[in-house]
Design a protein around this nucleic acid. Structure first.
Lengths: 173, 173
DNA sequence: GCAGCTAATGATATAACGTAACACTATGGC
DNA sequence: GCCATAGTGTTACGTTATATCATTAGCTGC
């Protein structure tokens, strides 16, 4: 991840630099409110893990989180992280990327949704698509097979706008 | 898996009993031809692993395959299975179900496609959807975000026709 | 046939990911 | 303060996957 002096971050799916601290702040504030409404406890540990997941728009592995967590909480062990992740998943605050065994913050935790992810093969960043047409098409086509959809996992691998341009430039050059 | 005297198998997505030996036979014949055309070697080991994957329409884990393989090949180890699986994946003869860490035979190995899977939460069986409309919608929606799609992984969890009926009956009863 | 090359497999070890089970601590209601 | 429950600590283990080097099989040209 490329950082500037002001903690701005180059994020492919944001097309331009953006103040990533703002993403983190929003996500945490949103999480505070959501948990308050739901009557569940976003404890310091859980909140810290959520913050760590949000450190970038790239999916992060559970053991990466564990390593970072140990810097500030020596007693952390795998269950420490996995329990926090399970909680965050249940509350819809993060998503799990199945094809990467990794986790990303959810940009729209207010409406529950299965995941639709665009994953850049080059830079590793991930953006949520959350397109209703796709979800509806899936449900409708599945129903034709007599199948009742409960959850959709859609993970699209390819090149994000920035990396696509780079690849194009290489081709052109 | 429920088997009858004639090796017929009850498969939800096939709605009725079907002669599963026929599925296996077709898959293997198809694989032989495909590998011949591609100029790659479907060795006895690889062919046997493919056959084992096709033993049912349920996804099977690598270590399950390993256990079975050891009955007839004592020296089998994890790499034995994983290398065979990698080969079969490359040739498009099987798919990996990311959300289950498991593998299923590909019903249409002739045309390369990302996976679209209907996974029954109840009985564990899997069917391929391979719907062009879904794939096209995904590509088109992704493109609007400036994203270039290379591979799609779509895994739909829910109830297959048979298990859906059962669940309905319970509700009704 | 066999020398020499490459693909495939054997064999060992270890990495990466995830969970079970039980003990202890914190929080909130009475 | 007492209790019940939720949350975290702690240890151990299970599952999934890969790295590495040694050996064997199959193919090519002679």
């Amino acid at each position: 991840m490329v950082k500037t002096a002001k903690n701005e971050v180059l994020e492919p799916f944001h097309e331009t630099r953006h103040d990533h601290a703002h993403c983190i702040g929003e996500a945490l504030a949103s999480a505070d409110q959501l948990c308050l409404d739901a009557g569940v406890r976003l404890t310091p540990l859980r909140r810290r893990v959520l913050e760590m997941v949000w450190q970038s728009h790239e999916p992060v592995g559970a053991y990466d989180l564990l390593d970072r967590l140990r810097h500030e909480r020596r007693r952390a062990a795998p269950p420490t992280v996995y329990r926090a992740l399970d909680f965050l998943l249940e509350q819809g605050l993060i998503h799990r990327i199945e094809s990467l065994n990794a986790y990303v913050g959810c940009g729209e935790p207010h409406d529950r949704h299965g995941g639709q992810f665009l994953i850049c093969r080059d830079c590793g960043s991930v953006a949520e698509l959350n397109d209703g047409d796709i979800a509806d098409t899936v449900v409708s086509k599945a129903r034709r097979q007599g199948f009742h959809v409960q959850r959709q996992t859609i993970e699209i691998l390819g090149l994000c706008p920035n990396c696509g341009k780079k690849a194009g430039a290489i081709h052109a050059g």
